[in-house]
Design a binder for these strands. Structure first.
Length: 119
DNA sequence: TTGTTGACTCCCG
DNA sequence: CCGGGAGCCAACA
């Protein structure tokens, strides 16, 4: 096995699409949010918003990736069934100072983070 | 190799 | 405002 790269390491740490997603999301500062499409666009393909969400779903528990700062283009939380996940996401965002609307929607025009361009 | 799935987005009614 | 359908690409079995 290659030295310096333990096989126990999760795939998200390897150089791949999810790896870039994790790295990009990790650059999002507290109090700001971004959309799946934006992350995908910064990665080079605005069509791969699904893969961004899929990559976040593959993140290991306790990862240093602020997955809760990633929302859909509608300014709402994507739960896809797991409401527990959405509840925690909203809680984490509120803890960072992000305010939600009555319908559980937030102001993307104000909270959407402007990417400084990713290599 | 192919086929299926999916934390999305856009369009239409 | 909300719902349904189609398209897109990457990872997994």
């Amino acid at each position: 096995m290659a030295a310096g790269l333990p096989s126990d390491e999760p795939r998200v740490c390897k150089p791949g699409f999810h790896g870039r997603v994790a790295a990009a999301v990790r650059l999002v500062p507290p109090g700001r949010v971004t959309t799946y499409g934006d992350v995908a666009g910064v990665l080079g393909s605005p069509r791969v918003a699904r893969q961004v969400g899929w990559a976040l779903a593959a993140l290991p528990a306790g990862s240093d990736v602020p997955w809760h700062r990633v929302i859909n283009a509608q300014g709402r939380i994507s739960h896809r069934g797991e409401l527990v996940r959405a509840s925690e996401q909203r809680r984490l965002l509120e803890a960072e100072g992000v305010l939600f609307s009555d319908s559980g929607r937030l102001d993307l025009a104000s909270l959407r983070w402007d990417w400084p361009e990713l290599p």
